[in-house]
């Protein structure tokens, strides 16, 4: 099936392969599951003029083979650290749907993609810090933290998120960063709760670090396995497990310092 306008000059398959994977890379880094990445990369490749696209979604890399008639090209690209950015994810998907309609060349699509990546808004850092503080305080209540500890959990989690952003700007290793943030959050939450006479100091220490629990990768791991991508799912599970160990190490160090949890 000829999905593109014959008037439009056909782009080289290498360019189509690299640009399609660029969409996949952004989706992966924004927290999409393997099935979503696969679907949208195929749609972009089709829109750019490939007859077929076979994508391999790995944890740290993507590999694609695109074909047009007898021509075939295979390319690979790295994927950065996993994160969650829903508005960028949505903007990339919307652009992919636009590209799928056909009529856009690689140069135009690349320019649109660059613009989407640069112009997608983010909330200001201070607002994210406060929102994370509120989320962890709410988590605290769900875990049975008493009212006296809610304020300290809020403050410690917000401080932890501020610290996490600072470390991310310095491109610190995410696992080491998790331990440091967990330590700061746990000690802050625990000390504050103790000062205010809380009876749930240990729970407050845990609640203040729940911002670090990798919930989205954990759920994506299961989805990937259910979708028939056990390799990607397993890699995500290993990442989640190691992250949890490093987060818990921070809580453990905090408990040692405050003499809690024995």
């Amino acid at each position: 099936m000829d999905r593109f306008n014959p008037e439009v000059k056909q782009d080289p398959l290498e360019d189509i392969a690299m640009l399609s994977m660029e969409f996949g890379r952004w989706l992966m880094e924004c927290g999409a599951s393997g099935a979503v990445v696969d679907e949208f990369v195929a749609r972009v490749a089709a829109g750019l003029g490939a007859d077929r696209a076979d994508l391999r979604v790995g944890y740290a890399s993507l590999a694609i083979t695109v074909g047009r008639g007898a021509e075939v090209a295979t390319r690979m690209c790295k994927v950065g650290s996993p994160g969650v950015n829903q508005r960028l994810d949505q903007a990339v998907r919307t652009l992919a749907q636009q590209v799928e309609q056909g009529g856009l060349g690689c140069a135009a699509v690349r320019s649109l993609l660059d613009r989407v990546v640069q112009e997608t808004p983010r909330y200001p850092g201070w607002l994210v810090d406060l929102a994370v503080g509120a989320a962890c305080a709410s988590f605290g209540r769900l875990l049975g933290v008493d009212w006296r500890a809610v304020g300290p959990v809020f403050a410690a989690a917000a401080l932890g998120q501020f610290f996490r952003r600072s470390l991310a700007r310095r491109q610190a290793n995410p696992f080491i960063s998790a331990t440091l943030v967990a330590f700061v959050g746990a000690v802050g939450g625990g000390l504050g709760a103790r000062q205010l006479g809380s009876h749930t100091v240990a729970a407050a220490m845990t609640a203040a670090v729940l911002l670090l629990v990798p919930g989205v990768p954990a759920l994506n791991a299961q989805s990937d396995i259910l979708d028939g991508r056990p390799t990607l799912g397993s890699a995500r599970i290993v990442w989640v497990a190691v992250m949890l160990v490093f987060v818990t190490a921070g809580i453990w160090l905090g408990q040692l310092l405050l003499g809690e949890g024995r």
Partner: peptide, 21 residues
């Protein structure tokens, strides 16, 4: 009701972290 309210608040906070519109 308590769990419902705080579940909603926790999701809202994480929504901001995840950059939902």
């Amino acid at each position: 009701l308590h769990q419902t309210v705080f579940g909603g608040l926790a999701a809202l906070g994480f929504g901001v972290l995840f950059n939902l519109g």
